[in-house]
Design a protein around this nucleic acid. Sequence first.
RNA 1: GGGGUCGUAGUUCAGCUGGAUAGAACGCCGGCCUGUCACGCCGGAGGUCGCGAGUUCGAGUCUCGUCGGCCCCGCCA
Length: 598
Amino acid sequence: MERVFTDHLGDWKRSCYCGEPRVDGVGRELILGGWVQRRRDHGGLIFVDLRDRSGVIQVVFNPEIDPASHEKAKQIRSEDVLAVRGSLTKRPPETVNRELSTGEVELSVRELRLLNASQVPPFLIEDETDANENTRLKYRYLDLRRPQSLGHLLLRYRMTKKIRDYLDSKGFIEVETPVLTKSTPEGARDYLVPSRIYPGKFYALPQSPQLFKQILMVGGLDRYFQIVRCFRDEDLRADRQPEFTQLDMEMSFVQPEDVIDMVEGMMTALFKELKGIELKRPFPRLSWEEAMSRYGTDKPDLRFSLELIDFSSAFKGSQVKVFSGAIEKGGLVKGVKVAGGANLSRKELDDLTAFVSQYGAKGLAWIKFTEGDWQSPIAKFLSEKERGEILGLTGAKSGDILFFVADEPKVVYEALANLRLHLGEKLGLISEKDYSLLWVVDFPLLEYDPEEKRHVSVHHPFTAPLEEDLPLLEKEPLKVRSKAYDLVLNGVEIGGGSVRIHQVELQKQLLGLLGIGAEEAKEKFGFFLEALGFGAPPHGGIAFGIDRMAMILSGARSLRDVIAFPKSQRAVCLLTDAPSSVDARQLKELGIKIALGD
RNA sequence: GGGGUCGUAGUUCAGCUGGAUAGAACGCCGGCCUGUCACGCCGGAGGUCGCGAGUUCGAGUCUCGUCGGCCCCGCCA
C-alpha cells in the first residue's frame, strides 16, 4: 500500500532546529520540522524522534492533548518528513535521555502536518551503519543524513572558509580559471571534451591551473589563490578521485622561504580553528635525500620512528649472497629494527614477506635476537665481523627483530618505506590524535625515465632549479636540485609546489632537457613561453589537496567520505550512473563515431 | 592491464567434506500496549544464492567465464 502525504507547510515558520531546544525554553510553543528517526508506538502514546542536521528531539503524540494528531501519527514511518506544532515540556526526571542534547525536554504535539512519506529506507540512518558502500553511494542522500557524513562536509566547509579568510587577510585574490582548456603533454592522462564547433578538436579538463596561475603572475595579480576542481583520468585509490579539489596559490617576487612561511601561517591558523591545536613553527624540514635515506620515501610519516638502517657497507662481499649480490649490482641492503619484535610468529613473518613482495622485493630477511642467540635463516652465513657491525649499527638487544631488504635502490626504498608504515600500524605505534607536519625540500629537478628513455620532471617542467646548481644543468642534469617543496601531513603529501622558472631562455632549455623540442614547445606551450617573454616576475606557489586534508583532519578512511558525491573505484557515479551512453545525434554533432574494438 | 577480497531476504551476515523444505538478526507488514527512547509482546510476509556456462544422480557450496563493490600493484609531472 502506497502511503501518500498531502499536508503542506502552509503558514508555519520553523522555530528552531530539532537539536536546539533546552530546559530554558520549556513552556514555549514551537514549530519543528524534520525526518522521522524512529517511531515508538505504545498504543496510547506515540513517541517520534524527529531529526534534522542539528540533532534529534523526542516529540510526543498524546491523545489527551490532541486526539487528531495522535490518530494521524499512527501512519508515521521512518524517514517521513513532518512538521509539528506543540509546547516544549520538561520530561519527568526518570525519563530524561542523557544521550540526546535535547534529552531533558520533549515536544507535546498539538498539531501534526505530514509533509512527505518516505519509502522504506534500504539501510538505517545511523552513524554505525554497516551498509556497504555500494548501497550508501547509490542512496547518497540517505547516507548524507547520517550525522557523521554531515560532520565531514561541515569540517571541509570550515576548512575552506578559514583558508579563504586567511588568504584574503594576506592580500590574495581568488580568480577563476577555465575548466575547458588545452591539453598539455607531461603528467596524467587528460579528460577530453569534444568541441562541436571544431569537429575533431578537443578541450581538456585541467589537471591543475598551473599555467594560468603563472600567467596571472605575469598579469601582475601578485597574490592569487583558487579553490578549484581538477581532473586526472587515472585509476582510483582510497586517496585518489578522478575529480578532486585543490587549493591553488601563487605569489610574485618570492623564494621558497616566502611561500613556506605563508603556508605555515595558514596551516597554523587552520589547525587552531579546526582542531584547537597550536602548531610549532617553523615546521620540521627534511631534504629529499635525507627523507629517502632515513624513511625510504619522500613523504615520511614522522609520528613514529622505525628509521631505515643502511647495511650496504657492512655486507660488501658477504657470504650472504643475496646481500653481496645486490650490492655488486649497484643495489643496497637496508633494514629496520623492531624493538621487542622477536615474538612475531612464523606466519606473521611470511605475511610480511608477502607484503614487501608487492613492491618488488624478492625476499625479506630477518634476524630474531633471543637470549644469547641469533635466530635467522641467514645466521650461519654471517661472519663475526658482520655480526659486530650489525650490533653496532642497530644496538639490537634480546627480544628485537631486524628486517632486511636487498635490491636495487628503488625496490629497497619502496619495500621498506611501506613495511615501516605497515609495522607502524600493525604494532600500534601511531597515535590517531597526533599530527605531524613536515616540509620535504631540495628535490631533484629531473629523473630518468627508462621507459621513455628521457629525462622527466620530478615536479613539473616549470619548476626552477636551485640557483647554486645551475652550472650542473648542462653536464649533470640529474644532480640538479630544484626549488620545490612538499608539505607532508601524517605521511600523506597534502601539498606540493615550487618557485617557477620566470625567464624564457631557461624555460626553453629545460623543455629541451625533457626532450621537448622547439617545435613541440611552441605548439604546446607557445602562449606560455610568449607570456614569460613579456616581463614575467619571479614567482612561486603551491597547491594543496583539499580532499586529502579534509580526510585526515576529519579522521575519515577514504576520500569518498569527505566528497558529497564521489565516484566508485571504477570511476562511476553510483547515484547517477555516469558515465553513460549519449544519443547518436549528440555524437553526430560532434563528428564522433564510436569504434570500440570487438 | 594485473593481484587480492567480497557478492545469499530490504540490510548485515551464517550456511561444514556437494545432499532433501536455504537460516539468524535488524528492517518491513498486521494485532496488542500511556513513559518509551535499540520500547515490549504476539503473529506474518519476504530468496532467480550477482549473471552465464560446465562437472555431477544432485551445486548457495566445485570449475571456467562474466558483471559489480572494496583494497593494492602498474598508472597518477
